[in-house]
Simulated assay, not measured.
Amino acid sequence: MTDAQVLHAYAARAAEYTSVLGAIEDMHEHDLRRIERWAGEIRGPVIDAGCGPGHWTDYLHKRGVDIAGVDVVPEFIEIARLRFPEVLFRVSSVRALDVADGGLSGVLAWYSLIHLVPAELPHILSELARVLRPQGRLLIGFFEGVSAEPFDHAITKAYYCSLDQMSRLLQDAGFEVLDVETRHDAGRRPHAAIAAIRR
């Protein structure tokens, strides 16, 4: 989907999304441990790419991470700034991040790539590689399934991706996959996470 389509869909329901999924207390304990463990290995600037209402950005900021949140949806950035005024947030798209080449030590992309048309993933992952220094770290969360299969997400259309496919795309974009995790909670879509390092 285009940025404009995603922006329109989330802008219309930004407050609703924040009330349902915008608090750390509502996040899965496994995800809390996973993201905190990943961030603990990073020294230097990090972005939360597709930060939404900013709860993950704030969570890591409170743990001493030098982090900023970016999102294509201005309504999310406004909400995040109001909720967490001590954290830096700005409007930006993962398609063209306003970050210098090699300017970051880490990128968190936690379920922020799920609305991308699958054919766009190689470009987006290359953009994430561009902004990371060598040995910079990336953590991606997504819904595991048949690659490129769409599903009706609560906000707007999203896509599954298989672990194998995402791993191959990351390798093609200049990453080395460090580890993968999956989680299947009853009544929910399968979750997956991949940690990778910039070659």
Rank of each mutant, 00 (worst) to 15 (best):
F143E: 05
D185H: 08
A49F: 07
F76P: 03
A192T: 04
D172E: 15
R133H: 09
H30R: 15
E127M: 05
I67G: 05
D185G: 03
V177S: 05
A192D: 01
Q165R: 14
A14F: 03
A100I: 11
Y160N: 07
R199T: 13
V146L: 10
H191T: 09
D66L: 10
G145W: 03
E29W: 12
S147F: 11
A173H: 06
A23R: 14
H28C: 08
Y160V: 07
L60N: 06
L121G: 00
G136H: 00
T182R: 14
T182G: 06
D31F: 09
F143P: 04
A14K: 01
G44D: 12
P134V: 02
P85C: 03
I194P: 03
R183P: 04
P190K: 03
D26T: 14
A11Q: 14
A11W: 10
Q171W: 05
L82E: 12
E29M: 11
D152M: 08
V72Y: 02
A129K: 03
K157S: 08
A68Q: 11
V6I: 15
R63C: 08
V117L: 14
V117D: 14
H153L: 05
H153A: 10
V180W: 01
R198Q: 07
Q165W: 15
A39W: 02
M1N: 12
L32Q: 14
A196E: 02
